[in-house]
Measured scan of single mutants.
Amino acid sequence: RFRLSPAARNILEKHSLDASQGTATGPRGIFTKEDALKLVQLKQTGK
Protein backbone atom coordinates (compact mmCIF):
# COMPACT_ATOMS: atom_id res chain seq x y z
CA ARG A 1 0.00 0.00 0.00
CA PHE A 2 1.29 3.42 -0.98
CA ARG A 3 1.01 6.64 0.95
CA LEU A 4 -0.72 9.06 -1.41
CA SER A 5 -1.10 12.81 -1.26
CA PRO A 6 -4.76 13.89 -1.61
CA ALA A 7 -4.08 15.41 -5.03
CA ALA A 8 -2.33 12.25 -6.24
CA ARG A 9 -5.20 10.07 -5.00
CA ASN A 10 -7.70 12.22 -6.89
CA ILE A 11 -5.71 12.08 -10.14
CA LEU A 12 -5.19 8.30 -9.91
CA GLU A 13 -8.89 7.68 -9.23
CA LYS A 14 -9.94 9.96 -12.09
CA HIS A 15 -7.72 8.09 -14.56
CA SER A 16 -8.27 4.60 -13.07
CA LEU A 17 -4.57 4.13 -12.35
CA ASP A 18 -2.73 2.26 -9.62
CA ALA A 19 0.11 3.89 -7.67
CA SER A 20 2.10 0.64 -7.83
CA GLN A 21 2.68 1.35 -11.53
CA GLY A 22 4.76 4.43 -10.68
CA THR A 23 7.52 5.55 -8.35
CA ALA A 24 6.94 7.57 -5.20
CA THR A 25 9.38 10.48 -5.04
CA GLY A 26 7.97 12.54 -2.19
CA PRO A 27 9.34 12.88 1.31
CA ARG A 28 9.10 9.66 3.36
CA GLY A 29 7.97 7.74 0.27
CA ILE A 30 4.77 9.67 -0.37
CA PHE A 31 3.30 9.38 -3.86
CA THR A 32 2.91 13.02 -4.93
CA LYS A 33 0.78 14.90 -7.43
CA GLU A 34 3.81 15.12 -9.72
CA ASP A 35 4.28 11.33 -9.55
CA ALA A 36 0.62 10.85 -10.48
CA LEU A 37 0.88 13.27 -13.40
CA LYS A 38 3.95 11.41 -14.72
CA LEU A 39 1.98 8.17 -14.56
CA VAL A 40 -0.94 9.73 -16.46
CA GLN A 41 1.46 11.03 -19.11
CA LEU A 42 3.00 7.57 -19.54
CA LYS A 43 -0.46 6.04 -19.92
CA GLN A 44 -1.46 8.61 -22.55
CA THR A 45 1.69 8.00 -24.60
CA GLY A 46 1.07 4.25 -24.43
CA LYS A 47 4.33 3.30 -22.73
Rank of each mutant, 00 (worst) to 15 (best):
R1Q: 07
R1V: 02
R1M: 04
R1L: 00
R1N: 07
F2L: 05
F2I: 13
F2K: 10
F2Y: 13
F2D: 09
R3S: 11
R3T: 14
L4P: 07
L4W: 02
L4D: 14
L4H: 01
L4G: 09
S5P: 00
S5D: 12
S5Y: 00
S5M: 13
P6H: 07
P6G: 02
P6R: 14
A7Y: 00
A7F: 04
A7C: 08
A7E: 15
A7W: 00
A7K: 11
A7M: 06
A8K: 06
A8N: 01
R9C: 00
R9Y: 04
R9Q: 13
R9M: 09
R9P: 04
N10G: 13
N10H: 12
N10V: 14
N10P: 11
I11F: 05
I11N: 10
I11R: 06
L12E: 13
L12Y: 00
L12W: 01
E13I: 10
E13W: 01
E13R: 09
E13H: 08
E13G: 06
E13K: 12
K14T: 14
K14G: 11
K14A: 14
K14L: 13
K14S: 09
K14N: 13
K14D: 11
K14E: 15
K14F: 11
H15Q: 07
H15T: 07
H15N: 14
H15G: 09
S16D: 14
S16M: 01
S16P: 09
S16K: 14
S16Y: 06
S16R: 12
S16E: 14
L17N: 01
L17T: 08
L17G: 03
L17D: 04
D18W: 00
D18I: 07
D18R: 01
D18F: 00
D18H: 06
D18Q: 12
A19K: 03
A19S: 09
A19T: 06
A19I: 08
A19V: 10
S20G: 10
S20F: 03
S20Y: 00
S20I: 02
S20V: 07
Q21P: 05
Q21Y: 04
Q21I: 02
Q21W: 10
Q21S: 11
Q21V: 08
Q21K: 07
G22C: 06
G22T: 03
G22F: 02
G22Y: 02
G22A: 07
T23R: 09
T23P: 05
T23N: 10
T23W: 05
T23A: 12
T23V: 14
A24L: 04
A24R: 04
A24N: 08
A24Y: 00
A24F: 02
A24K: 02
T25A: 03
T25Y: 00
T25W: 00
T25E: 01
T25L: 04
G26P: 03
G26T: 03
G26I: 01
P27G: 04
P27H: 08
P27E: 12
P27M: 03
P27L: 03
P27R: 07
P27Q: 10
P27S: 10
P27W: 02
P27A: 12
R28L: 11
R28N: 15
R28V: 05
G29W: 00
G29H: 01
G29A: 06
G29K: 04
G29C: 01
I30P: 07
I30D: 12
F31C: 10
F31M: 06
F31I: 10
T32C: 04
T32K: 04
T32L: 03
K33M: 08
K33W: 01
K33L: 06
K33Q: 14
K33P: 02
K33A: 12
E34D: 13
E34A: 11
E34S: 11
E34G: 08
E34R: 08
D35E: 05
D35L: 01
D35S: 01
D35V: 00
A36Y: 00
A36K: 03
A36H: 03
A36D: 09
L37G: 10
L37P: 03
L37Y: 06
L37I: 07
L37N: 04
K38Q: 11
K38A: 12
K38S: 14
K38W: 00
K38C: 05
L39K: 03
L39I: 08
L39H: 09
L39D: 12
L39M: 12
L39Y: 00
L39G: 10
L39W: 01
L39V: 08
V40L: 13
V40C: 11
V40H: 00
Q41Y: 02
Q41P: 10
Q41M: 11
Q41E: 15
Q41T: 12
Q41H: 05
L42E: 15
K43H: 15
K43W: 02
K43V: 09
Q44F: 08
Q44K: 15
Q44D: 09
Q44E: 14
T45N: 15
T45A: 15
T45Q: 10
T45F: 11
T45S: 15
G46V: 10
G46E: 15
G46K: 06
G46R: 12
G46D: 07
G46Y: 15
K47Q: 15
K47D: 04
K47M: 15
